[in-house]
Each structure stands twice: as C-alpha cells, then as structure tokens.
Amino acid sequence: MIMMLLASSARSSAFASISGRRAASAIASKYSNAVYNAALAKSPQTLAKVHAELATFSSTLKQSKDIDAFVHNPTLSARDRAAGLASVFKTIEGAGSKKEPVSDITKNLLTVLSDNGRLAEVNGVVEGFNELVSQYNGELNVTVTSAAPLSKDILSRLESSLKQSQTAQKAKTVKVTNKVNPSVLAGIVVDFGDKTIDLSAQSRVTKLNAALQLSV
C-alpha cells in the first residue's frame, strides 16, 4: 500500500505536503507523505494509532543502543533485518497498555525502509509524518534554535508574537520548542510551517564570507 502511494504522494492535498527542510531527504519526505495518506485513508483512528506507534519507535531508538545499531547498519543480511524488525515490533506492542498488535501500516513502512536500505532515514520519515499529523490536528509547531537555552520569559514573548502571525492564526494551538545549536553563535533561527526566520549571527557571518569571496 505504501509503495503504491509513493508514486502519487506529490499530488496529495495541502495537508500532505512538507518542505524538504522538515525531512531528512526528498526520499524521506515521500515516505512520510505515503504513510500519512495510507493511515488517514483508513480512518482518523488509524492515523492516531500509527502516530503513537512511530512515537514509541522513536523513543525506543533513542534509548536502546541495540536498536539504534540495527537501524544504522546497512550491511545486515535479509534474515538479520527480519529478525531485527520482529524485535522492534515486539517492543512497540509491549509499550501500549492494551498490548495491541502493531498496525499493518507501521509494519509496512519499517519493512519497506529496511528492504530498500533506507532504515537509517527513519528519523526524517517520522519527523515529516509528525508534521503532517500536527497540520491535520490544527497544530503549529514552532522550533526556536539558539546557541544557548532561552529563558521561559523570552519563549513566552516569542510565542505571543508568533500567535499574531497569519500562519499561527489559522492554527488551533501553537507549540514552541527551543533547540540548542552552538553554531548559531548568537540570535535565533525560527522555523514554523514552511517558513524560516534566520536572525542568527551565523547567518550574518555566512553572508559576510560570501561577500568577501566575491570581492577577491
């Protein structure tokens, strides 16, 4: 089902379009769109279930060195990949209170990624899928990247300002997340929807370097 949807994902609705910046690659974006469309085509309940399953997988990936090693090892045989996926599915099933079987859509996604040697891109796929689900739920996720953690007061003021934008006014809720990246040097980079507002010192340094190169 997922592979069939990959061919038509570029023609999907506005909810099913995300920028390359939000996915690890163009390929990851296609998988994100495909799994989103496949889940929503069944029902909103299925979309919520797949969302929860992929969230569990992402959390497990961060906590388990074994699963992380499995995901990022492209040299595994087909037999080892199948065994690794079986372990992943069992982990996802065990995380829920009802111990429900993993949905076919989640199984198909991870299996196709594994078979195509793209399992290492799963973080980008999940990130893109989460963005689509947020859009579907009327949520606007705003990422503020800074060289050092921002205070709650600054984040609160940023959130108030963002809520006045046309993009935020269309959303039911606005969620602001602060990410730390020392390469920003100073200032901030704000990502929301398909927009990026780069107010960082690194951006100014990059522009200066480009200007100097042209003048040489």
Results as ranks from 00 to 15, higher is better:
residue 7 A to F: 05
residue 9 S to P: 00
residue 9 S to V: 13
residue 10 A to K: 05
residue 12 S to D: 01
residue 15 F to G: 13
residue 17 S to Y: 08
residue 18 I to F: 08
residue 27 I to A: 06
residue 28 A to P: 00
residue 36 Y to I: 00
residue 37 N to M: 14
residue 41 A to Q: 13
residue 42 K to F: 11
residue 47 L to A: 01
residue 50 V to I: 09
residue 52 A to F: 05
residue 52 A to I: 04
residue 53 E to D: 09
residue 53 E to T: 02
residue 53 E to Y: 06
residue 57 F to L: 11
residue 58 S to L: 03
residue 60 T to N: 08
residue 60 T to I: 07
residue 61 L to C: 08
residue 63 Q to V: 15
residue 65 K to G: 10
residue 67 I to L: 13
residue 68 D to P: 03
residue 69 A to Q: 09
residue 69 A to N: 11
residue 70 F to T: 01
residue 71 V to Y: 01
residue 72 H to P: 07
residue 73 N to S: 15
residue 87 S to P: 04
residue 87 S to V: 15
residue 91 T to C: 06
residue 92 I to K: 01
residue 93 E to N: 11
residue 94 G to C: 12
residue 95 A to E: 08
residue 102 V to A: 01
residue 103 S to E: 14
residue 106 T to Y: 02
residue 112 V to E: 13
residue 114 S to A: 14
residue 115 D to T: 02
residue 121 E to D: 11
residue 122 V to Q: 05
residue 123 N to V: 03
residue 124 G to F: 04
residue 124 G to A: 04
residue 126 V to A: 13
residue 128 G to R: 05
residue 135 Q to V: 09
residue 135 Q to K: 09
residue 136 Y to M: 10
residue 138 G to D: 09
residue 143 T to M: 09
residue 143 T to V: 15
residue 149 P to Q: 03
residue 153 D to W: 01
residue 155 L to Y: 12
residue 160 S to R: 15
residue 160 S to E: 08
residue 162 L to I: 15
residue 162 L to G: 00
residue 162 L to D: 03
residue 165 S to I: 05
residue 169 Q to A: 03
residue 171 A to T: 02
residue 177 T to L: 06
residue 179 K to N: 10
residue 179 K to I: 09
residue 179 K to V: 08
residue 184 V to R: 01
residue 186 A to Y: 10
residue 192 F to M: 14
residue 193 G to V: 00
residue 195 K to V: 03
residue 198 D to N: 07
residue 199 L to I: 08
residue 201 A to N: 03
residue 201 A to T: 14
residue 203 S to Y: 12
residue 204 R to F: 05
residue 207 K to T: 08
residue 209 N to L: 06
residue 213 Q to I: 04
residue 214 L to F: 10
residue 214 L to Y: 13
